[in-house]
């Protein structure tokens, strides 16, 4: 980047980019601001942007009226649980495919990816009925199992692309140096693979946290994670913008922060390593 740019040009780009950035971010900002208003101020016309009486009552109210914490915990358990189980199943598979590629490995990976192409409505009915018969409807366990299965292809793919970057020669060197399979995994593979596994974990927690097909269809009041809980606000119940905003802010804040930290891995992970 040896290109010289005048300060004026730079200021111009800065203004334009910040303008567009704020525009895209505005709905989130507006939600956060509204969460600190009273219900009356939330629908006031003209709307007040900053000069209103800031209040925290919506946050306490949301917890008080609907046991917000339970839904938050549901989200945590389901997204983290499905990702961890997925990793336990996927790490050996990705390891084998990356370091012991067979003729069919490429086909197998493409097949796994193709399972993501199946629209969930194609299997909604039987899954719903099976869950009903097994009494898994509206349970954290049931939802965790489903999210594990729908995330598995992405987890395998992500790990595969990360493992692929570990040169096979290093593992062979370990083998020559007298390391058995166990020592190879503990002393060599794991330390080199941990960053990739951590990125995979992070991205899949984000994806599972925001999943909104199965969570809406397979849960009711008890096991509902935040996606389903927030959806319950769509039924009209008078003036509720401020409380909706408070609930929304709490639902998106943790994942937004995680997401901001994982920008780089996000690109890699979601493009199956095709774009880095």
């Amino acid at each position: 980047m040896a290109r010289r740019v005048t300060v004026t040009q730079k200021l111009g780009f800065t203004a334009l980019a910040w303008g567009v950035g704020m525009l895209l971010f505005f709905p989130i900002l507006w939600t956060v601001l509204t969460s600190f208003k009273t219900e009356a101020e939330a629908v006031a016309s003209p709307p007040s942007f900053l000069f209103f009486d800031w209040t925290l009552e919506n946050y306490t109210e949301v917890q008080h009226r609907s046991n917000y914490v339970r839904h938050f915990l549901n989200s945590v358990v389901i997204s983290l649980g499905s990702t961890v189980i997925g990793l336990i199943i996927a790490v050996p598979a990705a390891w084998a495919m990356a370091f012991q590629p067979a003729k069919r490995t490429k086909d197998l990976l493409m097949w796994m990816l193709s399972t993501k192409m199946m629209p969930p409505v194609g299997v909604l009915v039987p899954i719903y009925l099976i869950f009903r018969d097994l009494e898994l409807l509206d349970t954290r366990l049931g939802l965790t199992v489903v999210l594990t299965l729908i995330d598995l292809p992405i987890i395998v793919w992500m790990l595969y692309t990360y493992f692929k970057e570990i040169p096979g020669e290093i593992l062979e060197a370990a083998r020559m140096d007298g390391a058995g399979l166990w020592a190879e995994i503990v002393h060599v593979l794991t330390p080199m693979a941990v960053p990739g596994i951590a990125s995979t974990l992070l991205l899949n927690v984000i994806l599972a946290w925001n999943e909104a097909f199965w969570t809406l269809n397979l849960t009711a009041a008890k096991a509902a994670p935040l996606t389903a809980f927030i959806a319950s606000y769509s039924s009209p119940e008078g003036l509720f913008y401020a409380k909706l905003s408070a609930a929304s802010t709490m639902a998106i804040a943790p994942i937004l922060i995680l997401g901001w930290f994982s920008q780089k891995q996000l690109v890699r992970g979601l493009t199956f390593g095709a774009v880095k």
Binding site: P167, E169, I170, E172, A173, A174, R175, M176, D177, G178, A179, G180, H187, V188, P191, M192
Partner: peptide, 30 residues
């Protein structure tokens, strides 16, 4: 015989050093 049992050492094209270990630990590993 498994590679490690043959009493051979190998130097690889990419050197295949363990990136997370110090030089000392690399040499000490075998």
């Amino acid at each position: 015989l498994a590679p490690a049992k043959r009493g051979l050492s190998m130097v690889f094209q990419s050197y295949a050093l363990y990136p997370h270990m110090s030089v000392r630990s690399n040499i000490a590993f075998p």
